[in-house]
Amino acid sequence: MMRALAIGGFLVGLALFGLIEWLARREGSRIPTLGEVCAYVMRYEVGPVPVGRIGLFGFWWWVGWHFLAR
């Protein structure tokens, strides 16, 4: 029962990512695409340090390492 709940929850989460991306890509949508949100986050800098880029690249590299190397 709890296993089904976990699987269902993750599937709903993934489906929501897809649904909102689809809504964002419709003409005239007020929702930015996930790529635009990421680009906006990557603009964040502290002085000369591109904190946003380092943070997102680091997070995505960790995702790959966690699922594909561990």
């Binding site: 976990a6 993750f10 993934l14 929501l16 909102i20 809504l23 929702i31 680009a39 906006y40």
Partner: peptide, 29 residues
């Protein structure tokens, strides 16, 4: 690269929905 947006529209708040759903289940499990 593409040009990054200067600001995000208010609709960006919708992205918190899948992040929260996924985060709640990942945290709970």
């Amino acid at each position: 690269g593409h040009t990054a947006p200067q600001r995000l529209s208010s609709g960006a708040i919708w992205w918190t929905l899948p992040v929260v759903v996924f985060g709640v289940f990942e945290g709970a499990t």
